[in-house]
Design a protein around this nucleic acid. Structure first.
Length: 579
RNA sequence: CGGGGAGUAGCGCAGUUGGGAGCGCACUUGAUUUGGGAUCAAGGGGUCAGGAGUUCAAGUCUCCUCUCCCCGACCA
C-alpha cells in the first residue's frame, strides 16, 4: 500500500470528543471515524488490524474443535420470547418492525439463534461435545457509550457456543476455552490480562469469568488479593467487613430537621457515616418494591441484589411507591413500614450497634438503633438478612482474610457456563446411550474484536503514537523515503517496496513529497513495527536504515544485506507473540 | 432518565453592541527546501445543525426540533 492513496488521513489535533489515548490515537492516525454515538467506521488500517486479530482468534477456536458459522443479526421477536429475554432485557435490545409490521430485534448476542439451530441439528449424545462460533456484528443499545472504540453500540464479536452431555464435560471444555483465550491474548500482544470471577448477568448460568486488561482507564473495577490470588469483578466480589460492637444503648427519638442524606445526618449529629443506617428503595421488573438497609458508609452492590431478588432488572423506586410502603423518604428505615414489605437487611447493619436510623417520621431519626433488639423479625414475613455491600479497598479477603486491593480493567473477553437454560427454553432434546432424553448443557464464549484492538492501543503507545505488536500490525514494514524528489531515492524506495512485497512482506510506502519530519512523525503515529529509511546520504553509502518502533533502536545495514537482516528481525519479533 | 456543555470550511477554533463569514492546520498550483511536524506566493472549499419567529438587516435575539460530548446514574 502506498500512503498517498491510503483512504484515511492523519490529523494533527486530538479529536475534541476523545478522552482515551486509544481513541485519540486511532482517530489521529487515520484508523477510525465516528458516524454516530457509539457507532464507528473502521478505515483500511484498522480493518487490516481487525482481520489479523480475527485470524488469530479463528486459529485458536479451530484448535479446540470450534466450527465457524454465521448467524443472522436480524431476528424475529419470537426467538427472544422463547427464552423470556424479549421482556427481561429492556432498552438495550433494539426492537423495530419490518414492512409487514412484524416485530424484529437486532441481536445483541446469539444464544437464541444458536439454540434455534441446535434444535434441528442435535439429536444424539454422539454429536457431543460440539462448539460452533462466529465472528459477526452485534448491536447493543448502550445507555451511555464512551471511550471511543472501547464501548460502542455496534461491534464485531467472536461468539462461541458449546453443547455438552453433562456439567463435567462442560467444565472440561470451559477450561480449554479459558486456555485458548490466554493464548489469543498473548498472541495479539496484550500483557496485563487476568481472568476474574464475574457475574453472568443477562446470559444466565452460574459460573463465568471475564478476561480483563489491567489499565487505569478501564471501566470495570476488579477486586484482588495478593496473598491468595482471589480475583473478582467488583460486581460479584465479596469481603469480610469490620463491624463495630459495643454495649447497646437505649433507643431514642431525635429531631433531625431537614437532614435527609447520610452525609447531612452524620454531619448534623457529628458522627461517622458508619454509625448510620442507609435506606434505599428499589423496584424490580414487575414493579415490586424493596426496602434495602445497609450501613451508611457502604454502597449496595446492585448485581448481588439483583441475584437475591431474582431479577435482571432493577430501578430506584419512585417517591409515590416509597410512600405506599408507609416509609417517609429521607427518614426511612424498616421501623413502622408495612409489615409485608420486601425488606433486605445487609449484615453490616445487623452486626453493628447503636446506629442512627430513620424514624419514618418527617424530621426525626432514632439514635442507638440495634437491629437484633429493635426489630422483631418474626413480624416481617418478607424480611431477609443478606450480604450485598460493595467491596471497598482494604476490606478483608473472603478466602484468606488479607486486605483486598482494587484496580481497573477493560473487559476484553468473557466465558460462561450456562447450564440448560437455553436448551430447555428451546426444548432441545437429545438421546443418551440408553435412549433416554436429556437437555444438553451449554457454554458460551465471547471476545469483542474491536475492543481488543482498542485495548492493544490503550496498552501499547508512547508520546509519538501507536506501537503495534507485529502480530496484529496493519503492515510489517513502513518505508520512509526522505527527499523523495531526489530521483535516486524515489527509485530506490519503489524498488525496495516491490522487492519486499515479492518476498511476502506487508509493506506501507510513504511516497509523499513531504519533509523528513512529517514522514517520521506520521510513521511513528501509525505505529508499524519496522521502519525502513531511504535517504540520499544512505544511498551514497549503499546503505539502508532499519528503525524499530518499539525501542527506537536504529540499525544501518548494507543494501544487499537488508532483506536478510530485516527478514530475520521480523521473524524473531513474531516469536515474541507465539502462544 | 436527570443535570451541564457544545454544534461556524475536512479537522481544531475565533466571531464584541444585530450590518464584512474569518483564523490555524489540512487540501490545490508554483518556487525554494528535505534526518524529526519547512518557507514564500497564488488558490479552492460554507445550508453558520435544521425549522419557525422578531427586525430594514440574524452566525449573533426568541421559540421549537435534531445531533454530539461530559457528569450523575441511586443512598432517602
Amino acid at each position: 500500500m502506498k500512503l498517498q492513496n491510503l483512504f484515511g488521513t492523519r490529523i494533527k489535533e486530538d479529536p475534541k470528543d476523545a478522552e482515551l489515548i486509544s481513541h485519540k490515537l486511532l482517530v489521529r492516525a487515520g484508523y477510525l471515524r465516528q458516524n454516530a454515538t457509539g457507532i464507528y467506521s473502521y478505515l483500511p488500517l484498522l480493518q487490516r488490524v481487525l482481520l489479523k486479530i480475527t485470524e488469530i482468534i479463528r486459529e485458536e477456536m479451530n484448535a479446540i474443535d470450534g466450527q465457524e458459522i454465521l448467524m443472522p443479526l436480524t431476528q424475529p421477536k419470537e426467538m427472544w420470547e422463547k427464552t423470556g429475554r424479549y421482556q427481561s432485557i429492556k432498552e438495550e435490545l433494539l426492537r423495530f418492525s419490518d414492512r409487514w409490521d412484524k416485530e424484529m430485534v437486532l441481536a445483541m448476542t446469539h444464544e437464541e439463534a444458536v439454540s434455534f439451530l441446535a434444535k434441528t441439528e442435535l439429536s444424539s449424545y454422539k454429536q457431543l461435545p460440539i462448539m460452533v462460533y462466529q465472528i459477526q456484528l452485534k448491536f447493543r443499545d448502550e445507555p451511555r457509550c464512551r471511550g471511543g472504540i472501547i464501548r460502542v453500540r455496534e461491534f464485531t464479536m467472536k461468539d462461541g457456543y458449546s453443547f455438552h452431555k453433562d456439567e463435567e464435560c462442560l467444565k472440561k471444555y470451559y477450561d480449554s476455552v479459558y486456555e485458548a483465550y490466554e493464548k489469543i491474548f498473548k498472541r495479539v500482544g496484550l500483557r496485563k490480562v487476568i481472568a476474574v470471577q464475574a457475574d453472568p448477568g443477562m446470559m444466565g448460568g452460574r459460573i463465568s469469568h471475564e478476561f480483563m486488561l489491567l489499565v487505569p482507564s478501564g471501566e470495570d473495577t476488579i477486586v484482588y488479593c495478593d496473598s491468595c490470588g482471589y480475583k473478582a469483578n467488583k460486581e460479584v466480589a465479596t469481603s469480610k467487613i469490620e463491624s463495630f460492637k459495643e454495649e447497646m444503648k437505649q433507643l431514642q427519638l431525635i429531631e433531625t430537621p431537614e437532614k435527609k442524606s447520610i452525609e447531612e445526618v452524620a454531619n448534623f449529629l457529628k458522627i461517622a457515616k458508619n454509625k448510620t443506617v442507609k435506606a434505599v428503595f428499589y423496584a424490580d421488573d414487575k414493579d415490586k418494591v424493596y426496602l434495602i438497609l445497609i450501613r451508611g458508609d457502604r454502597e449496595v452492590n446492585e448485581t448481588r441484589l439483583k441475584k437475591l431478588i431474582n431479577s435482571i432488572y432493577l430501578r430506584f423506586a419512585e417517591e409515590k411507591e416509597i410512600l405506599e410502603t408507609g416509609a417517609v423518604p429521607g427518614y426511612a428505615s424498616c421501623l413502622g413500614v408495612k409489615k409485608d414489605l420486601n425488606i433486605f437487611i445487609d449484615n453490616t447493619v445487623v452486626e453493628s450497634n447503636n446506629l442512627v436510623a430513620g424514624a419514618n417520621k418527617e424530621g426525626y431519626h432514632y439514635l442507638n438503633f440495634n437491629f437484633a433488639r429493635d426489630v422483631d423479625t418474626k413480624s416481617y414475613p418478607n424480611l431477609r438478612i443478606e450480604s450485598f455491600a460493595e467491596v471497598l479497598e482494604g476490606d478483608l479477603c473472603p478466602q484468606c482474610g488479607s486486605h483486598l486491593s482494587v484496580t481497573r480493567g477493560i473487559e476484553i473477553g468473557n466465558i460462561f457456563q450456562l447450564g440448560d437454560k437455553y436448551t430447555k427454553s428451546y426444548d432441545i432434546k437429545v438421546l443418551d446411550e440408553n435412549g433416554k432424553v436429556f437437555y444438553p448443557v451449554m457454554g458460551c464464549y465471547g471476545i469483542g474484536v474491536g475492543r481488543l484492538a482498542g485495548s492493544i492501543v490503550e496498552e501499547s503507545n508512547d508520546d509519538s503514537g501507536i506501537i503495534w505488536p507485529i502480530s496484529v500490525a496493519p503492515f510489517e514494514i513502513h518505508i520512509v523515503a526522505l527527499n523523495q524528489k531526489n530521483k535516486d531515492v524515489y527509485e530506490k524506495a519503489n524498488k525496495l517496496y516491490k522487492e519486499l512485497i515479492e518476498n511476502s512482506f506487508e509493506v506501507l510506502l510513504d511516497d509523499r513529497e513531504e519533509s523528513a519530519g512529517v514522514k517520521f512523525a506520521d510513521a511513528d503515529l501509525i505505529g508499524i513495527p519496522f521502519q525502513v529509511i531511504v535517504s540520499p546520504k544512505l544511498i551514497e553509502r549503499k546503505q539502508i536504515e532499519i528503525k524499530i518502533r518499539k525501542t527506537s533502536e536504529k540499525i544501518i545495514v548494507d543494501e544487499e544485506k537488508l532483506l536478510e537482516t530485516l527478514g530475520s528481525m521480523i521473524q524473531k519479533e513474531y516469536l515474541n507473540y507465539q502462544s
